[in-house]
Design a protein around this nucleic acid. Sequence first.
DNA 1: AATCGGCCCAACCGCAGAAAT
DNA 2: TATTTCTGCGGTTGGGCCGAT
Length: 278
Amino acid sequence: MVRTPCCEEMGLKKGPWSPEEDRILISYIQQFGHANWRALPRQAGLQRCGKSCRLRWTNYLRPDIKRGNFSKEEEETIIKLHQILGNRWSSIAAKLPGRTDNEVKNFWHTHLKKKLQRSNTSMNNSTSTPVQKISQSTSTSTGIMAVQPQIVMSHIEEPSSHTKEETTVRTIPRSTRNVISIDHDYGNKYFMLKEAKIKCSTTSTSTSTTTTPLFDPRLQIISFNSKSSMDQYTMKKGSSNDNNGLTSKNEDMDFWYNLFVKAGESTPRPLKTLDALL
DNA sequence: AATCGGCCCAACCGCAGAAAT
DNA sequence: TATTTCTGCGGTTGGGCCGAT
């Protein structure tokens, strides 16, 4: 479907907001709320598109927004959550009261990314973390085509040779759901593979039908220092079965947050792509 | 004082998914 | 079920600010 950008509509203003426009928007939302962003600027008498109004409100004018520098605790939370969630800024911001996804994203790009790059460089120059190559294969038992996802890894230590095992990735065809594919005891360390989304498309011709999995290309291998940490996860997985085995995005995000941040799990080391490690 | 270059951040853009019809 | 509309998200941009030269 093709849609014209909303700001191409005639006569709509772009660029920085004036104090007067801010005042009009705040006043209107305080009176009438923002049930329909598209209709809002017309009703409020603003020469802006609804999208621009929404962004201005959510990123700047909302009364619950916290301005000012990020605290040390907020900084650490962002770093931890980014290791777990990647660039899911809105999910990260949801755990920082008063902060917006835009603000978190900007803070990451302007401060934290560079800071981590500096610390990684110094770490590599001193003691390098041993990384064990994980071989992978994709089961064909489900009958779906194998797609090579991007794999990111956190904290993996060298296992002793007699405990080394192959890690097998199993995939489950479901429609746009978070799916946990395996967990894995790797010697005395505990690992999990977490697959973000799996969505399948089916193409039929007169002679054949092809089912293609469309992965969100993020597959995380996450290590745990203790069985109890992993058991928390298992419990979570079990409870989700009550809901037909499916977990919502928010529930899943909350789980990882609680596990790593609130429960005091040791900070996972910076993620590295598998390609970079092999 | 003028210029330059890097940094910061508000705002925009395009896409994807959800909701409505 | 198909189509359209709306909303939210993440990536990117561009203008203002500020320190260095």
